Simulated assay, not measured.
Amino acid sequence: MSEPPTTILHITTESGWAQAQAAGELRPPSLAEEGFIHCSTAQQVEATANRIFSGSGDLLLLVVDPSRLNAPLKWERATDVAAEFPHIYGALNLGAVVDHVALPEGADGYVLPPALRG
Results as ranks from 00 to 15, higher is better:
M1N: 09
S2D: 13
P4A: 09
I8S: 07
T12M: 10
Q19G: 09
A20M: 11
A20I: 09
A22M: 03
A23L: 10
G24L: 02
L26P: 10
R27T: 06
P29G: 12
P29S: 14
G35I: 03
H38W: 12
V45T: 04
A49C: 07
R51N: 15
R51V: 11
I52L: 15
I52Q: 09
I52M: 13
I52K: 10
F53G: 06
S54R: 15
S54W: 13
S56F: 07
S56E: 15
G57Q: 11
L59C: 06
L61F: 12
L61K: 02
L62N: 01
V64E: 11
P66S: 05
P66V: 05
S67E: 07
S67K: 15
A71E: 04
P72R: 09
L73H: 05
W75S: 02
W75Y: 13
E76Y: 14
R77W: 13
A78S: 10
V81F: 07
V81W: 05
A82D: 11
A82R: 13
E84W: 12
F85W: 03
H87V: 10
H87N: 12
I88H: 04
Y89S: 02
G90A: 01
G95L: 04
V97P: 11
V97N: 01
V97I: 02
V98C: 06
V98P: 07
V98S: 11
D99Q: 13
A102F: 02
A102K: 14
A102I: 02
L103M: 00
P104A: 09
G106D: 15
G109C: 11
G109R: 09
Y110R: 08
V111A: 14
V111M: 08
V111I: 07
P113K: 10
L116P: 00
L116K: 05
